[in-house]
Design a protein around this nucleic acid. Structure first.
Length: 736
DNA sequence: AGCACGCCGACT
DNA sequence: GTCGGCGTGCTC
């Protein structure tokens, strides 16, 4: 059984003349060679089915010559799918990403082969068409059917019976008399064609200027990146819809990338208001059957606009002419398993390869995009003001040293009194705290024992509602004990610090009659329930909302006039070089939830560091100053210039193992590079779940140098067990 | 990535 | 005596 099985020898013909390279969805460093049967036609990009070990997989015929391998190993391609080939741009894109992320090209190819049923054409369905012949006699039911079918349009049997409101036997009867004949109907489009002229946008001032810039960029029909930078409510979406319209007018397809969570019904409806139909959706929630149809119709050019999460970047567009990356700063664009990539950067690369424009939109752009804009590599369009009726909230910092909360509480008297006033005006308050559960740490008052995760040593978070202690890094959960496991003392465990559950407890104590709702990702009932709750809040069915990050995104709450950030400092001191930037972005988004209808509104930041640059920037609304300072600070700290942060992650099971790797890497590293060990807390979930709980982040001065260095390192460096991945935080422009 | 093979612990 | 854990190794 070690050699070719007898079965294989009998079923597959021995290799004929030609063989081609085929990229298989597997972590192989290069394409495999397959024989092309004499009567088969393939070209680079053809999607084929090939035998791979014991199974059949889909692969892509690749470019170039295939390398000479043992002819006895060579097996023939089993089937060529009747499917548009993956075009040369897309193939270059795959090669580029593989090289850039140091991932096997096969794994990148796997990302575009994720709709296996779509490789065969959608079947035509059987339909009925009126022949013009009359029935033997007319009944009321028959008349209704004939009226519908009179224009010669083909109907499906069930479609026609439903539309006419008759039983399908009526249709069968007419068909038997020759009134209808069977015809084949092509597959129904997954969405209607968007009409760029459906509703013209009403744009003013800044918006008009920005829209003109974007339209010009599309008309120029070459690679260019524009950063569309505008505060929440300034009409960014309407502005980039103009770029979408321009691309549609040019007969090009458009991809709009959104963080998964922002891909809401509300967004789809805004699109529909402008273009008369919804875009095709592409994200993890789309049913498999629908996904296949979208994939196929994108490949054939039937779908003109896709709104999708990051994986939509790997759809095989036929004539892509524009990518919009909305909320471009959002960390959700980073994929941190298998192939590590940042969809925002890959979108820029895709645009470069395809020679078309890319729009990056955000109210709080990432620092690297801001740097790219200020250095002239990206154009920048700025929307300064909100729409007339949507006034910006005024924002104040509450100095928690001067205005401390009552003992045992976490809400300052100032925040509580504003909540009371808001309640009296029948308006809504939002309390934001980016921490799930009841308390982030539990300790024993007698012996000082702290509850730690057995597998990743971070503190266990108490979830009082579920009676559990949970690890937020690896998902470990245990029942909350009554007694201290160390000293056995009963009832002396004490919760330290607040989570949203604890804040809710305090709020209910203070405002027992208010309708209070807690929103966090551990809500029972999943995304569906969450959407319902958000709707309910928007409809005014709650007075006080307490929430984590989830409430910061997307949704509009027209009656929300007070936003209180319980711990605005949270996240500022966690060692992440992007901590300040992330906090700034999050606080901007959260405070932006208030005042969307022009009512007087207020944001209060509870902080111990009212003079911190992040707080000052949020309070003054001077984002510009924040960015300038941030760029300056990081340069002074000797951190890599923005947009040129490269790194690799070497994962290890233990700190000792990680330190061993770090020593080996430091010996090989040029002096400009720095190697950090990231603990379990900073490792992505996918890594912690396995045995690789530590990561080494290797940062370098210039991305291109780093790339060369990493290559050398992986080829000649110390033997590294476990997985080696590239951290993709690099400005792709420096590679182009 | 899959999927086989292969070698050591608790059960019908 | 087997079922089943996941450690290694291979796939043109």
């Amino acid at each position: 059984m070690k050699q070719d099985s007898p079965q294989r020898l009998t079923e597959e013909k021995p290799a004929a003349g030609r063989s081609v390279p085929v990229l298989v969805p597997m972590p192989a460093e290069r394409p495999y060679s397959y024989a092309v049967p004499g009567d088969m036609c393939v070209e680079p990009g053809s999607i084929v089915r090939v035998p791979l070990g014991p199974r059949q997989v889909a692969g892509i015929v690749w470019d170039g010559e295939c390398e000479a391998i043992d002819p006895r190993k060579l097996r023939p391609i089993s089937h060529v799918f009747d499917c548009p080939p993956i075009d040369a741009d897309m193939r270059r894109f795959i090669d580029w990403i593989a090289a850039y992320t140091l991932s096997p090209p096969g794994m990148v190819a796997r990302m575009i082969l994720r709709a296996p049923e779509a490789f065969d054409p959608e079947p035509w369905v059987e339909g009925l068409q009126a022949t013009g012949a009359g029935p033997d006699r007319l009944t009321a039911a028959r008349t209704r059917v004939l009226e519908l079918a009179a224009n010669g349009m083909a109907w499906t049997r069930s479609g026609l019976s439903h539309a006419a409101g008759v039983s399908s036997t009526v249709i069968d009867g007419l068909k038997a008399q020759g009134v209808f004949e069977t015809v084949m109907i092509p597959p129904r489009p997954v969405v209607a064609a968007p009409d760029p002229a459906y509703a013209s946008a009403e744009l003013t001032g800044d918006q008009e200027e920005a829209a003109r810039m974007l339209r010009d960029s599309v008309a120029a029909d070459r690679f260019a990146v524009t950063l569309l930078d505008g505060v929440t409510g300034s009409g960014k979406t309407e502005v980039y819809f103009e770029a979408v319209a321009a691309a549609l007018e040019e007969g090009r397809q458009v991809l709009i990338l959104l963080p998964e969570i922002a891909l809401t019904q509300a967004f789809l409806e805004r699109f529909q208001d402008r273009f008369g139909t919804k875009p095709a959706e592409w994200h993890s929630d789309v049913a498999p059957r629908k996904r296949e149809r979208v994939w196929r119709q994108v490949a054939e050019g039937g779908v003109r606009v896709v709104a999708g999460a990051r994986s939509a970047l790997f759809l095989p567009f036929k004539e892509l002419g524009l990518i919009v990356v909305d909320e471009e700063h959002d960390p959700a664009y980073k994929q941190e398993d298998r192939v590590f990539y940042n969809a925002r950067d890959m979108a820029v690369v895709r645009g470069h390869i395809g020679g078309f424009p890319v729009v990056l939109a955000s109210a709080t752009p990432s620092v690297e995009s801001r740097v790219n804009a200020s250095q002239g590599r990206y154009a920048r369009a700025v929307l300064h003001a909100r729409f007339a009726e949507a006034a910006l909230p005024s924002i104040r910092a509450v100095d928690m040293r001067r205005s401390p909360p009552a003992r045992g509480g976490f809400l300052s008297p100032m925040l509580l009194s504003h909540m009371r006033e808001t309640l009296e005006r029948s308006e809504q308050s939002l309390l934001f705290l980016n921490r799930r559960g009841y308390a982030p740490l539990t300790l024993c008052r007698v012996c000082g024992h702290r509850f730690q995760c057995p597998s990743c040593s971070s503190w266990l978070v108490e979830h009082r509602f579920r009676g559990q202690l949970q690890c937020h890094h690896c998902g470990h959960a245990e029942k909350r004990p009554e007694a201290c496991p160390e000293c056995g003392t009963l009832d002396h465990l004490v919760a330290c610090g607040p989570g949203v559950e604890r804040i809710a407890e305090e709020v209910v104590g203070q405002f027992p009659d208010a309708r209070t709702i807690v929103l966090s990702s551990d809500i029972l009932g999943g995304v569906k329930r969450l959407r319902l709750e958000l709707e309910a809040i928007a409809n005014g069915e709650a007075d006080i909302v307490i929430g984590t990050q989830l409430v910061a995104k997307g949704h509009n709450f027209p009656n929300m006039t007070l936003v209180g950030v319980v711990d605005a400092d949270l996240g500022l001191a966690n060692g992440d070089p992007r901590a300040a930037e992330r906090t700034f972005q999050l606080l901007s988004q959260v405070t932006g939830r208030a005042g969307r209808t022009g009512k007087k509104s207020l944001g209060l930041l509870q902080t111990f560091q009212p003079d911190h640059p992040v707080m000052r920037a949020i309070v003054s609304g001077d984002a510009e100053a924040f960015y300038e300072r941030e760029i300056d600070e990081r340069q002074k700290a000797g951190l890599p210039p923005f947009g040129r942060l490269a790194g690799i992650i070497v994962s290890a099971a233990t700190r000792a193992e990680a330190e061993g790797h770090a020593r080996g890497l430091r010996r090989a590293a040029p002096p400009a590079n720095d190697i950090h060990i990231l603990g379990p807390a900073e490792a992505p979930l996918a890594l912690i779940a396995g045995r690789h709980r530590f990561r080494l982040l290797v940062q370098g001065e210039r991305a291109a140098d780093m790339q060369a260095y990493l290559r050398r390192l992986l080829a000649t460096g110390p033997k590294i067990r476990g997985s080696v991945r590239v951290q993709v935080d690099v400005d792709p422009q420096s590679f182009l």
